[in-house]
Design a protein around this nucleic acid. Sequence first.
DNA 1: TCCGGTGTTGACTATTTACTCAACATGCGC
DNA 2: GCGCATGTTGAGTAAATAGTCAACACCGGA
Lengths: 113, 113
Amino acid sequence: MKTFGYRLRELRRAKDISQRELAEKVGVDFSYISKLENDRLPPPAADTILRICKILEASPDELLAATGKMPTHSKEMLGTSAAAQQFVRQAHEMDLSEDEWGALTKRLRRLRS
Amino acid sequence: MKTFGYRLRELRRAKDISQRELAEKVGVDFSYISKLENDRLPPPAADTILRICKILEASPDELLAATGKMPTHSKEMLGTSAAAQQFVRQAHEMDLSEDEWGALTKRLRRLRS
DNA sequence: TCCGGTGTTGACTATTTACTCAACATGCGC
DNA sequence: GCGCATGTTGAGTAAATAGTCAACACCGGA
């Protein structure tokens, strides 16, 4: 598995911008980006990852999954609903595979069709 | 809506134990329980809520939902899977109702039948 | 009446999180 | 061989999180 930092560097280089430019647009210090890319610091807050991905025009799923963190709004949505909590516990018990999660997402899309 | 503290007090009294006894079993200071019950401090960490609910033999969903927090193991399960993240984002976009979450949980149970 | 059990309050603290700031290194064009 | 853009590193920090500790107040029974 690629580290968070390695993948971040790949994404930034793909956009061909410097650490300083990315940092400024994201709103953090450029030295922070450097340390992240070298895995010298733990990954940033989930919300910061979202901002980074927006600038780099990348899907946040990959980088977020590499950190195990969840964005604030996701936590809120899941956290404030008892029914959602129940769902999550059930999913945890079943230890779903990636494919099963995919199937559920499909199912979800059809839920209102 | 009942506050976290109010509901905690209800649950503790239902078990008919003192703040001190609950606190000792949970592993926190008894004055902490007092402040929680009077909503003088923000709710504890999600994992502490789980311990409290275990002692009080109550389902954690209600108290957890009152705080908007998620247990560590739930966050890990969801956070480390890109497919799960995608699911969560989709769910967020759709802004599911409690009933819809319930339907999904049912669906989940049948997923392997 | 005083004492043990209970609850409340204010002040303080330890840890973690999420970074910043200042300084230095390195490569490249000119 | 200077200047400038870029990247790296060590030390430090601001805010949030999750509580603790000591002191006091109240009440019912012996």
